[in-house]
Every structure is written in structure tokens, then in C-alpha cells.
Simulated assay, not measured.
Amino acid sequence: MRDAHIYNFKRGLPRMSWHPHNLYNLWRRSYGPLEKITNRVEYKESLNWRRWTAKALLRAYHGDFINEKIFKRWYLPETLPDVRPTEALKKVEPVLEVNRWANKQEAAQKMEKRAEEERQKGLAPVGSLMFTEVERRIDVVIFRACFAHSVYEARRLVIHGDVLLNGKKHTNPNTRLAPGDMVSVDPKAIRFLQDRPDPVEEDADTAEEAADAAGEASESKSESKTVPSTSRFSKKHSTSSSSNTGLTPFNLPPYASPFLFIPAYLEPSFATCSVIYLRHPTARPGYSEVPTPWDADGEVVRLTWEWYSKRRMRIRSKSQLARMPDNRQ
């Protein structure tokens, strides 16, 4: 199974899930004892080790069900974005002096104006756009639209035939959506819309009453057949009254409140259990539309970009193009 032992406490890798164990691993990686890269001042490990660890943390959340070789070949963008830190703007001054010395006043003015705008607005956190192609997958879209408890459950919904793509049954979870595609999910397969079983509560008084009733079973056997229990009758009555309201039940998973948000590039309709993929995720200064548990402009993303900028695959032959996952552009 693709989701076997994914919440292992020893590894402690955050995943696309609302499971309580996943929330605990996220806390351990962000503030707990497993914090390894973020908020560090001195680094005793090598730079290559830190890059690999950052890559493992991000890949565990963004598409851990995708093979690493396939991810580097088909899901990384052709040109990776520039994730230089803000301190790199200080290096613009020597270039400006060279342009002025070479009498390139127009080029110097444009560069100075651009540097000033970047200082005021800040650089866009484009490092998270490495995972734009992963966010286009139909199973990830279903999870982002809050129709499944995890991306692994969303994959099973697609494979089992509970999902429609533009009104037609679709069973390929590797499909990347195009802007304007509509994905519909069968309401019977959504766990959010199912009634929770009522918990059975027993205390000492109930146990004593049950023992006394068992001792007097021979005397009240005929009465117990004709007179129903008051607690059972009230329980059935309350269930029937809630079902007659005409409202659809919506039950959140435990500890789901910190993750209940929908990205701006999706337009869900909970009345019809469908979602429209509006456009591809983008980023602007101070904001990234790709949901991630890490800082979109932080060191984890920057080290991951440095890892993939040297190891990504650039050659795609005809035989490889024939095996490319379904991409609706």
C-alpha cells in the first residue's frame, strides 16, 4: 500500500493528511525535537546533507506517492525559479557602478528602479512553484477541496470510480488538470457527509441496573417484551428527528481545524460535491498559492531548489514522451 507506515514517528515526515499522527509529526518538525534545518544558527552537517534533508521534507508532503525519478522528469518545471535571498540585492550596487562607468545610463536606471521596487515589495516566494505540477493532479485537487481526509483516500476515490472529470467517469489519479476542468465526487463516498456512529456509554449505575434486571428476568420477562426501554426510545427518537431536518450532516475529522482552507485557484461547490480548477497556482511578494507546511521563502525550500537545480533530468526522448502521465495542459 502507498500509505503504509507514512505516519511513522521515527521519521516524523508531514504528509497531505488530516490524521492526528500527521499533526503531531508536523509539530515535532516545526517546534519539537525533530527540528533539523529551520531556525538554525550553526550547521555541523555538510551542505549536501542539508540539501538532501530539505528535499526529503518537502517531497514527503508534496507528492510522496510519486516516484523520485518520475518526479524529476515530469513534475519539475523546465526552468526552476530563482530563490535567491534578499541579501542578494546588495550585490546590485557594483553592477550599477560598472554600467555608469560604461556610460550605460538607461540600463543603470532600469536596474536601479527594479532593485528599489524589490526592496519595497520584496521578492515573490517562487520556490514553492516547483510543486505546481503536483498541485494540478486530480487526487491532490480533491484533497485540497476538502472532499477527502487525505490525498491517499482521494487516490482511492479516483481508482474506485467515485470521481467524474467533466461529467465522465475517470479512474486515472495521475491526470494533471487544465484550467476550467470540473471534478465531481460521489456524495456517498465522502466521509465528511456520513453520519457518525453514536458512542456507547456505560457507567457503574447502568451496570448495577443491568445486574438487577438479569436477576429479576424470570419475574419481568413478559413485561420486558411489551414495554420498550425509555433510553433506547429516546435515542431512536433523537436520531429520527435529526434526520428529518433535511440538512446534510458534515462531520469534521479530529484536529482538522488548522488545515481547513481552500486555495484560491479552486472553486468548490459543496452543494453538488464538485470543484472547478480555475488556473495554475501563482506567487506574489509575500504570498504563495501552493499550500505547504514550510515557509514558502524559507531555507527548506531554498535548499531543495539547490538540490534539484543540479540533479533534475533535462533530456526527454520520444519513448519517454510516450510514457508521460496524462497532461491536459
Rank of each mutant, 00 (worst) to 15 (best):
V158N: 00
D139C: 01
R144A: 01
V183R: 04
S222T: 13
P187A: 07
E216S: 08
N174R: 08
I159C: 10
D139H: 04
Q194L: 08
M130H: 11
K225M: 01
E223P: 10
T175M: 06
P173D: 01
E223A: 08
P187H: 06
H149G: 15
D162E: 10
L177N: 06
E216G: 06
A210H: 09
D212V: 07
L123M: 08
E208K: 15
R114D: 14
A148M: 03
G127E: 07
R232A: 13
R136L: 00
E153L: 05
G127Y: 00
T226G: 00
Q120K: 04
V126T: 11
S222E: 10
H160F: 01
L157N: 02
N166C: 03
R144M: 00
D181P: 06
H160K: 07
A204T: 05
A154V: 08
C146H: 11
L193A: 09
A178Y: 12
K121V: 11
R144F: 08
L193I: 15
L165G: 00
V185N: 01
D212I: 10
L165T: 00
K110S: 10
K235W: 05
A189N: 05
Y152V: 12
V134L: 05
Q120G: 15
S150Y: 02
K235E: 07
K110T: 07
A204C: 02
G161P: 00
K121Q: 04
R144D: 03
Q194Y: 05
T230S: 13
K235R: 14
R176C: 08
G167M: 02
D162Y: 12
L157Y: 08
P187Q: 15
I159Q: 14
S184I: 10
S128Q: 07
E209Q: 04
S150K: 13
F131D: 03
E219G: 13
L123I: 11
E112P: 00
F233C: 14
M111W: 11
S231G: 03
A108G: 03
F192A: 05
